[in-house]
Design a binder for these strands. Structure first.
Lengths: 164, 164
DNA sequence: CCGATTTACTTGATATTTGAAGCAAATGGC
DNA sequence: GCCATTTGCTTCAAATATCAAGTAAATCGG
């Protein structure tokens, strides 16, 4: 027979690590989902908007020169079809403007309108306060640690390129 | 006029904190969404399942005596209607069994079937390996810090009660 | 015990998201 | 330059999720 199971034989250890990672992921998922729900329902109630819409506007706000549809979908981590419908809705409301990219006949450049900028700024202020409130139970140390650990985690997915 | 703006006057400080919390939230959201996508597409490909289904089965696996519909929806953070349809589908596939709660005529108790337990165990093994792989870039210290910070964060939402 | 209220769940209409198929412009090899 | 392939976006059907309304059982106050 093989060695008697001690508390640190390789098999057991691996299992333990797996479980630990799983618990970590579960917690990450739960926290994010809970916050997401609070945020989304607040945006709905106060601004007749949603988190995906806010996210999209935020990306555009950061890119005054506009973004292509594809770039948008990559940044907000959603499908192209979804971006099409989000942008279409925002355009109907006059918050966003689409126009053909000058350098590529297939591409579309999306930009915030003046109204869109105003609207986003208002929302963003309320949004920041809400988020700050949700996170204010964390100590400065915890925040730093969280930020750093998530930064490391993100590397795994974004083999290179920008920060966010 | 008021005092000249130093780098630490209360207003500026508040703004800075708000922004910092926002960046933290953005990162949390991004990481979670990225992992979610990997996990979900893996579950789809390898097991013709999805993350919500996995989550639901996981809850039942932990509660051998079964759970009520309401308890399930609270745990997986989704609406009652959604749980009804998830459970209905899983029951059609024979992974789950519904029966009236003995002590309350309105309530339904959901339980894993033997097949459901087998199926979940298989999925869970693969799932754990995947997750462990995604998190293996984190040092032991980072994992602990992450787990702890998320624990603190969770308190904010679950004023009392169990851990997860 | 009775009616009013609350609780647990289901139903069905609506909204959102995905994923695959389609179209048009750009690119690359020849 | 021309055809094949790739890229950027849109469309539409199917899958999911939400929300509000409905049903039925339990609880509560008399």
């Amino acid at each position: 027979m093989t060695a008697p199971a001690t508390t640190t034989d390789p098999e057991t250890r691996l299992d333990r690590d797996d479980h630990e990672a799983l618990r970590l992921w579960l917690r990450l998922f739960t926290c994010t989902t809970m916050i997401e729900r609070v945020v989304d329902s607040t945006l709905r109630r106060d601004f007749a908007s949603t988190l995906p819409r806010f996210d999209l506007l935020a990306q555009l706000f950061r890119s005054p020169d506009g973004l292509r549809m594809g770039e948008l979908s990559a940044r907000i981590l959603t499908t192209g079809g979804n971006v099409t419908s989000l942008v279409a809705a925002l355009e109907r409301e006059g918050l966003v403007k689409r126009r053909p990219a000058p350098d590529d006949g297939r591409a579309t450049l999306v930009r915030l309108t003046a109204a869109g900028r105003r609207h986003f700024t208002t929302m963003a202020r309320a949004h920041e306060r809400l988020i700050a409130g949700l996170f204010d139970g964390l100590s400065a140390t915890e925040r730093r640690a969280l930020h750093a650990a998530l930064g490391t985690l993100k590397q795994r997915f974004r083999p290179s390129r920008d920060t966010r």
